[in-house]
Simulated scan of single mutants.
Amino acid sequence: MKETMMAFIGHYGYAAVFISMMLGIIGLPLPVEFVMLFAGSIVAATQLHMTGLIAAAWLGAIAGMSVNYGLGRTVGIASIGKVTKYIHLDENKLTQLAVRFQKSGPALIVIGYFVAGLRHAVPFIAGASGMPYKKFIVYAWSGGLLWISAFALFGQKFGRHWHSLIKWLHHPVAVLAIVIVLCLALLLKKKIFSSLSHASGVK
């Protein structure tokens, strides 16, 4: 996957970054974080510039978030629940979360970028809950810029040493560290969903 993404971005440049980020946010199984890491790593070897990469990825993320928001407004909770039930968010939970979303929504929009699953569900819930688009897009803009900048700048900084990093990641200590980080991320995701459910009155 990484070789394909690298070739895609290297050949089509900013357009590839935009499309990849948009489709990844909409829900296609694309490693959107790695898209920016890989994009940042080839800046020195191409005519691309980091500012342009961040802008293209940001616009792609905003486009994807807007599409999901629009689907939430038009499709509704029942249809969304058929998809999000696989991440432990069935229709009943989504209904109560939509009510709660009016208060906690802004924070969720920003945090959601950094949590797989939540990233895709949040704009759906925002649309289904009736959050005004003007309010939604302000937090989608700021959260997206923060998320993309962090990964893009990391990729730029370590891009020259990418092959060394890949070799290091195969070291047992690195593998253990990655497993621990993934476990912590899953616990955080579970805690967020659990807290929201309790706050919304879900038993």
Rank of each mutant, 00 (worst) to 15 (best):
H163L: 12
G13T: 02
T4S: 04
M5K: 06
A152M: 14
M131G: 04
P123M: 04
A56N: 09
I25P: 00
I80E: 08
L108F: 04
S79E: 15
S104Y: 11
F34D: 09
K134F: 10
W168K: 13
T4K: 13
H171I: 00
S195C: 07
P132Y: 02
L196E: 01
L196S: 04
A63E: 05
P31K: 00
P29V: 14
G13W: 07
G72V: 08
A7L: 14
A63S: 11
A45Q: 13
G64F: 03
A55D: 12
L53F: 01
G144N: 02
W58A: 15
A107F: 12
K203F: 02
A140M: 01
A126P: 03
W147V: 02
G10S: 10
V99W: 03
A45K: 02
Q96K: 15
Y12N: 14
I62D: 08
K190M: 06
C183V: 15
V75E: 01
G155C: 06
V138N: 06
A140R: 00
V173K: 10
V179S: 10
Y133I: 13
G143Q: 04
Y14R: 01
H198K: 13
A174I: 12
I77D: 03
K190E: 14
Y12Q: 09
R100Q: 14
K134Y: 06
S66Y: 00
S20L: 13
G105D: 11
H88V: 09
L59R: 05
G105M: 11
S142W: 10
I166K: 06
A116N: 05
G159W: 05
A150I: 12
W162T: 01
V75A: 15
K135F: 08
A44R: 13
L187K: 02
A177G: 06
A98R: 00
K157P: 09
I125F: 09
Y86C: 03
G81W: 00
V17T: 04
G130A: 10
T74H: 12
W141F: 13
A44H: 07
R119L: 10
V99T: 11
M22F: 01
A140L: 02
P29I: 12
S129I: 02
G159D: 14
H161G: 10
M5N: 04
L196W: 03
L28M: 13
G70F: 05
V35S: 00
A78H: 15
V43Q: 06
L176Q: 13
V115E: 08
V122S: 03
F158M: 13
L153I: 15
H161Q: 14
V181E: 01
G52E: 07
L187W: 11
L89C: 07
F124L: 15
Y12A: 15
H49I: 11
A7V: 06
F154V: 14
M65P: 00
S129L: 05
I42S: 03
R100A: 13
G144H: 01
A185G: 14
T51A: 14
P106R: 03
G201N: 09
K103E: 06
L71E: 07
T4L: 13
F124I: 08
K103H: 09
L23R: 04
L71V: 11
S194N: 13
